[in-house]
Write a protein that binds this DNA or RNA. Structure first.
Lengths: 197, 197, 197, 197
DNA sequence: AATGAATGAGACTTCATTCAT
DNA sequence: CATGAATGAAGTCTCATTCAT
């Protein structure tokens, strides 16, 4: 961001812009995400938008950061406390599906369509590291067998499975399907708890 | 396509255009996929591109169709013959990783970034139906337990898992990782072969 | 128009664009009427043109509307007051020739060359109706004989005669010819005042 | 034309091209009149079109020349023989309306839309000269009064009146209206026969 | 001669960004 | 600080014309 908002009024403006941007991205996709439209939707002038964001990219980054922070919060919460595998997986799936049900399109657009200068999407970004880290911790805590790959690779697989199922469920309008969620839970539990064969 | 190429020369041109388009899409993403750049990369003029494709969208469709046909061919081949679960899963993972190793970014861009007029991305498209159908046949053949979801939902999950893992492996440059592939194989076998608990 | 100009500055811009468009149309015809050339002639950028006119067609409509409004104003004025036939016809011919002398080619281009979305050129448009209406009122007031066609058909003929003579006079560069104007007056008076034969 | 067609086959080809061009111009207007479409409609390749016409303009000129020759033929015929004013005017109006009823759009497009390098539309062209000449001869033969303008100006007015009424009748779909034709005849007779007042 | 594939200048239009008010 | 008018590079697409086969 070009300028940190000092006054309360500015903070409200910035918030309105980010909010409007997220809504447009979610509802109309990357193609309609133009600085002029975002400004109009936020009820401010383009000039004001450029007061706080030096260019379009920095605005996406702000929106992306906010969204990914929400996702990380879910991950953090899911790892808290002592739970059984079943309980852990069940909570995680429920919360992730819920998080993506709010703005089904946003996640996909942010991760796949929107370009990115900084390395949020970089495999070595802080976000990715923490994200995979949470899964790795769960693997550490719950894996039943020494067989198979390293904790880190298992964590990646888990992350990718979650991502793939949610992503495609959103595409099919199946984010609300109980059967799908239950089956995903079963898959994850089976995988984590698999004893040696 | 606007016009079927009659002479040998034009068939070469069309092929060059589709090929160049796929390469740009894969290496530089949707943002750089401009009709002028594709034409230049193909070594022809924009005019030639528009001789065969009425607009930009129809060019993507052609590229997409070619890629998805390749994927379907793999699926079809993988289901042939009598194999053990392990053999089936192993072949499938190997072929799918191989198919995506040629143009690692193409799949993602085609499925997520590039807009689409026709319904290739529609959950009810013929492509999706056949694709899921192949997985459903495998489930039918190999599932070890009656527990869990319907064949159709299991097929979706399998498809989404494969998609998610490959998609993210491409992003991380890990399409060549043997450990990852082995672990994916283990996950899929475990899932399919899971006996009642 | 896409956007109503709020500030004084923008009203000037819009005016300059319409003015430049009319001049190009009149002097160089439809073929040279490109958005870039109009913008340049108006001393603004293409972007500004598209800020106020959603597309090329809407710009022509604006130019057309302005021109036709001028014509209608002349018709309205000519019908006012109590005059002799001679006086009425004389005034009308003088004013019409004068109106077309500013941009001699404009009328022709607008009516014949330039495409039209809305129905300005529709035989049943409001413009046509009012235009013919004025002539019909004049026929009503001045026709000397019951012989001949209905008032409405006479009005059409009068309108077409005026149109044809001015159109071709513009083409021949004869809009200033006194002899031509006098002769047209004579024709119209003779026609209106013709007693039974 | 680039090349005079020597063989019979060539003459047929040229004729087909001119014919197809006239049809497209009449039915679809100037905007659809592209060399590729004309060639296709004529059943030949673009290359063949350019064999006989060096460029697009020369093709229009050929079409225009053919159409104007038809018009002149009507004028010539109408002036033949000894007739009363009424008979002369009646024949002329009938034939002119008939000539324009075949391809109502062609005349307008050729005279107003289509650009022209050579001076067919030039006020001093041979066509214009002969055209006005025919009217001047009629004025010479039939004018009843010395009052009014020169024969030449009267001829212009007559020509313009005919042009204006037919042009607008075509636009209104009234080329078949008997009332309109009768009224035009009445106007022209009145004008020519007007005795001193 | 004929064919039709290929060319590329140029037209229309969008949108990120700047700057006078 | 805010506004919104203005800018212009860049993208999509068309079509007159050429030329290898």
């Amino acid at each position: 961001m070009r300028k940190a908002p000092r006054q309360a009024r500015s903070r409200v403006t910035v918030e309105a812009i980010v909010e409007a941007g997220a809504r447009i991205l979610s509802e109309h996709g990357w193609a309609e995400f133009t600085t002029n439209k975002v400004a109009e939707a936020a009820g401010v002038s383009v000039g004001s938008l450029y007061q706080y964001f030096p260019d379009k990219l920095s605005l996406i980054e702000a929106i992306r950061r906010r969204h990914l922070d929400d996702c990380l919060a879910i991950m953090r919460r899911s790892g808290e406390g002592q739970k059984s595998v079943e309980r852990f997986v069940d909570d995680l799936v429920r919360d992730m599906f819920a998080a993506h049900s709010l703005n089904p399109g946003l996640h996909r657009v942010l991760l796949d369509e929107a370009p990115s200068f900084d390395a949020t999407r970089d495999p070595h970004s802080a976000f990715e590291a923490e994200y995979i880290g949470h899964y790795a911790a769960a693997v550490e805590a719950y894996r039943a067998s020494a067989e198979g790959a390293s904790n880190r690779v298992m964590a990646m697989i888990l992350s990718d499975v979650m991502d793939g199922v949610i992503h495609n469920a959103a595409r099919r309008g199946m984010l609300g399907s109980v059967e799908l969620k239950q089956e995903l839970v079963r898959l994850l539990c089976t995988y984590l708890a698999a004893s040696d064969r």
